[in-house]
Design a protein around this nucleic acid. Sequence first.
DNA 1: ACAAATTTTTACAAAATCTTTATAGACCAA
DNA 2: TTGGTCTATAAAGATTTTGTAAAAATTTGT
Lengths: 228, 228
Amino acid sequence: MNKAEILIIDDEPQIRKLLRINLESNDYKVVQASDAKEGLTLAATHPPDLILLDIGLPDKNGHLLLQELREWYNKPIIMLSVQNSEEDIVSALDNGATDYLTKPFRTGELLARIRSAIRRSQNTENHSVVIAGELEIDLIARTVKKTGEMIKLTSTEYNLLALFAKNEGKVLTHQLLLKEIWGYSYQQETQYLRVFVGTLRKKIEDNPNHPEYIVTESGVGYRFQQPL
Amino acid sequence: MNKAEILIIDDEPQIRKLLRINLESNDYKVVQASDAKEGLTLAATHPPDLILLDIGLPDKNGHLLLQELREWYNKPIIMLSVQNSEEDIVSALDNGATDYLTKPFRTGELLARIRSAIRRSQNTENHSVVIAGELEIDLIARTVKKTGEMIKLTSTEYNLLALFAKNEGKVLTHQLLLKEIWGYSYQQETQYLRVFVGTLRKKIEDNPNHPEYIVTESGVGYRFQQPL
DNA sequence: ACAAATTTTTACAAAATCTTTATAGACCAA
DNA sequence: TTGGTCTATAAAGATTTTGTAAAAATTTGT
């Protein structure tokens, strides 16, 4: 199981330090930004599993940053703020924030709310094991088996296959795939997809020249499906 | 869009009344229970879209009821409690509560958290499928089936068919079709349409010489319709 | 710091799709 | 019937998209 990655966007060094220590000791990988600009860049180049976003940033209002992030980022965003006004809370939640905590917060509660948010975002209506033909993809254990045999995948290969498995039968566009796996700013790098779909097919298809699991939809993207 | 239904499980009549009035004036349908037993029965016989669950119930601890509900109910459950202890909050969230608010709560915030929870839970199921005769066009998965068999279409063929399907029964002019599929500057290229309507008919019609799904309206355009 | 594993680039071949051209048929009005 | 307009189909050609191998760069683990 890979560590979940959390991006902290907050300008107060003490808060960042407090958060980092608590999160790392709970087995999260932490990335930090001290202003909106840096946060946006980090989120776009390397999408985290959850964002902790302070409202009072020096260079941009947190509500605005939330809206900008929500244009393409759909994993959890938990807002932190010294503001306890109802207006702030309602606005944040209606703009797509997953949760809202007022500072000072209790770290145990914050951690529980983070666990809850990540759990829900991974449980998007999918079973923990996806079975397609001879393939078994265990989304909790992060393992893949074919006819019972374990298949060794690199991290990126697995992430790609898991995304496919969660959307069995649906076409996933190049852009969606790139956005989800590599990040918002990689949407033009379709060559990455060709390479990684290629290596995945070599590992999971009976005949990589006539793929049955990952089929290409020319000009659109790829589709993961039950073999015929 | 039907009204979302909310089940309130709380033993204090004043709180129930306050909640009911607020929720109903925000266009929710409200069902009420005053103890755990009644709540469980109501939830089971007529599953609501969201449950508001008070922790301090007379006949059973709310934490326990939460666990029992979560064995089968996977829509949002928001916990309400006079308890503000971190232990309570963490326990509730880790047992699958969607959110936790301490009484007295601000109704605006509660309503925002309810909207947020319902929005997220509904995001997972919106399959729109157009059915015409033997044809099934799944606009999300981007698949077309005829008598259950998948039909392989190229990107442009699919785009064209999807546009037809979204406008079943209506005549679509050459210009509109060309503009939508190829772009504004292709409005004179009616030959494109002849070619692509031709290939589509070969793939979806029983007898392409006597089309039933895509009929031509000479001099005007084409119409997609239910076969007679 | 080094070796191994993985990801990112680059280059080119192969396949699929789209565009264009050519030809023929259908329909209608004079 | 005849000429004109609109439509259908096949097939060649041009273009775009995809697949694959392998080198270069980066990351990871020891």
